[in-house]
Amino acid sequence: MTIHVKGLTKRFGRKHVLNGLDLTVTPGVTGLLGPNGAGKTTLLRCLATTLAPDGGSMDVLGLNPADRVQRTELRRRLGYLPQDPGHYPHFTAFDLVDYVAILKEITDRRERHAEVRRVLAEVDLSEQAKVRVRRLSGGMRQRLALAQALLGRPDLLILDEPTVGLDPEQRMRFRAVVSKVGESRTVLLSTHQTEDVAALCERVVVMDGGSAVFDGTPGGLAATAAGRVWLSEDPPDAARLFWRTADGRYRTLGERPAGGGAAEPGVEDGYLLLLGDRARVAA
């Protein structure tokens, strides 16, 4: 067990963002899904020790983040990619990652530079090592943030919306990097991309209203939509969850429309039916 959260609460003003959350995460790749405001980013910030919860308990890598000494040790063993990673625009890509490596206490210069080159290669930025951050594209900056999170081969990798700005080829490379980490360590990632969850995650947790409303495999989430996904030639009369597919037919979730035939459910179908209207934009 890498993470054990019990009764976690966090409130901003009158809004309860985390509402008595219970969660256990084991080695492998676990995905967090949920609409905006579900509490995903707040949970990740608490686990990454950048935000203190109001109540409940956390055990992360056998350490208690509420204890100052244990919190420092935990920070040495985790990698974190926040939703909005900050960059120093005048640094080169190499210098920025090197600076973060110093903060992570990799003090030997030769060892540190070898590690910086390794993580830049992992995210396919070796050729941009001497390019200033301000000249990098949005996707390159996102990969640079991932490189920083990979420094030191962390036991726990926390990623908040890591594939934002990545093109399909870069997303495939991201999946390869993260799946490799997940073979022996723990990855917890938040995303709105249900296809990333289906392709990458062994486990998915759906959050809504600060609580976990589903916890299982991607296949299990898809199975919750069995018998509730339909394809028809004409648009349904009253259904709210439907769209026109590339082949011109209409995919409907929920009640069977007139002339509708059963379709194989996917992760997105299960997610949308679980959360209804609140999930449509996020998915």
Rank of each mutant, 00 (worst) to 15 (best):
K180G: 15
V29A: 06
R14V: 11
E115T: 03
I102N: 12
G220K: 04
R110E: 07
T217M: 06
V213A: 07
L159S: 04
P35G: 01
P82D: 03
Y250T: 08
D155H: 04
G37H: 00
G139S: 06
C201P: 08
T72E: 10
P236D: 04
A198K: 07
L253D: 05
Q128A: 05
Q128Y: 07
I3N: 05
G152P: 10
L159N: 08
K104S: 06
M207W: 02
L272A: 07
R75G: 06
Q170E: 03
E183T: 13
P154I: 01
E161N: 12
R240Q: 08
T72N: 15
L23T: 12
L189R: 01
L166N: 04
S190H: 14
G266V: 04
R228Y: 05
A212S: 13
L188I: 13
D215E: 05
L47Q: 15
D54F: 02
N19I: 05
R11D: 00
D277V: 02
G276S: 14
L32F: 09
G13M: 13
D247N: 11
V131I: 10
P85G: 00
P85M: 08
P168Q: 04
V123T: 03
F91C: 03
R280V: 11
G56R: 12
A66Y: 09
D208Q: 08
L44D: 10
V131S: 14
W230Y: 01
Y80Q: 12
R143A: 09
V5P: 07
Q142E: 00
K6V: 12
Q170M: 15
G37P: 11
A149S: 11
H90S: 14
M207K: 02
L274F: 02
D98Q: 08
P82L: 06
C201V: 09
E73W: 12
N36C: 07
R228A: 13
A238R: 13
S179D: 02
L120Q: 03
P236N: 09
A212Q: 08
D269Y: 06
V5Y: 00
A52K: 10
V197L: 02
V281T: 07
R112G: 06
A176T: 14
L96F: 15
V116D: 04
V229M: 01
K15T: 10
T72Q: 12
L120N: 15
E233G: 15
G55H: 02
V181K: 08
T49L: 01
E268H: 03
A258S: 12
S126N: 08
R112L: 14
L157I: 12
D196Q: 07
G210A: 02
N36Q: 01
R141T: 10
Q128L: 15
R171N: 00
R256V: 00
S179C: 01
T49M: 10
M1C: 02
E127H: 08
